[in-house]
Simulated scan of single mutants.
Amino acid sequence: MTRPSLTLGYVPGATPAKWARHWADRHPEAPLRLHGVTAADAAAAVRDGSVDVALLRLPTETSGLAVIPLYEEMTVAVVTAEHVLTAADNVDATELHDEAILIPADTVVDWPDAPGAPVEHRPETTEAAVELVAAGVGVLLVPQSLARLHHRKDLTYRPIVDAPTCPVALAFPEGPQSELLEEFIGIVRGRRPGSSRGQTQPERKRTAREKTLAKQAARAAAGKVARKPGRGRR
């Protein structure tokens, strides 16, 4: 009999390790299979069933998919370790106007009016673009996780304070979901073990007046206990 399993696709830079650990703790009988996908192919992989669910980057074509936004990454400029932009902890867009900007074919930064002069040659991949940055050809704009993924000793990066962010989302087919997929969505959303989507709402927070009245009632009850009559004095 085939063991039940769930396949999670994830784009470069995404980090599903935390969710994979939680899944392994809760569902050791059903392996979570991790499958790397390119940013361009992630949504298609969900639609054609190559993966059951995917961590992907937005914007992308998500027709036929349900999408849960998860977080947004800052955009950074990858430069050589000696570059003038390393003088500060971060940069703004105006400081990039005179820079040659590398735009790989697999870029995931949605910044149509990005500053700088695009380099005519477009490398096929972000990894190839990083090599060109190291060779002094230009500056590369990527989400911070990709800068970390392609880290080199001769390169560094600086956050761009006014650049658009790079959203990451969870995507899965629209419609009824399998029990395993529902469980994984719950883990990503922070649902605790044993809880369910239909669990009761958390207790309403008390108002300041309700708290005061409760304290007064507690003091009064404590006083009654302290004054509870014992043997009378002679």
Rank of each mutant, 00 (worst) to 15 (best):
P4F: 00
S5W: 09
T7P: 06
Y10N: 02
V11I: 12
G13D: 09
A20S: 05
R21Y: 14
R21W: 07
R26S: 13
H27S: 02
D41H: 08
A43D: 09
A43F: 01
A45L: 02
D48I: 08
G49E: 13
S50T: 12
V51H: 05
V53M: 08
A54H: 09
L56M: 08
R57E: 14
E61N: 11
L70M: 02
V78R: 00
V78P: 07
V78I: 02
A81M: 01
V91W: 05
A93C: 05
H97Q: 15
A100M: 10
I101Q: 12
P104K: 02
P104Q: 03
T107F: 01
V108Y: 02
V109H: 07
V109S: 00
D113G: 04
G116D: 02
P118N: 04
H121M: 12
T125Y: 01
E127A: 10
A128G: 15
G136Y: 05
G136K: 03
V137L: 02
L140W: 03
L140Y: 05
L146P: 03
L146M: 04
R148G: 12
H150G: 01
H151Q: 15
K153G: 14
T156W: 00
V161D: 06
V161C: 04
P167W: 09
P167R: 03
E174W: 13
Q177S: 10
E179M: 08
L180W: 12
V188E: 08
V188A: 00
G190H: 05
R191P: 03
R197E: 14
G198I: 08
P202H: 10
E203A: 14
K211P: 04
A218V: 07
R219P: 04
A222G: 13
G223W: 09
K224N: 14
R227M: 13
P229N: 08
G230P: 09
R233V: 02
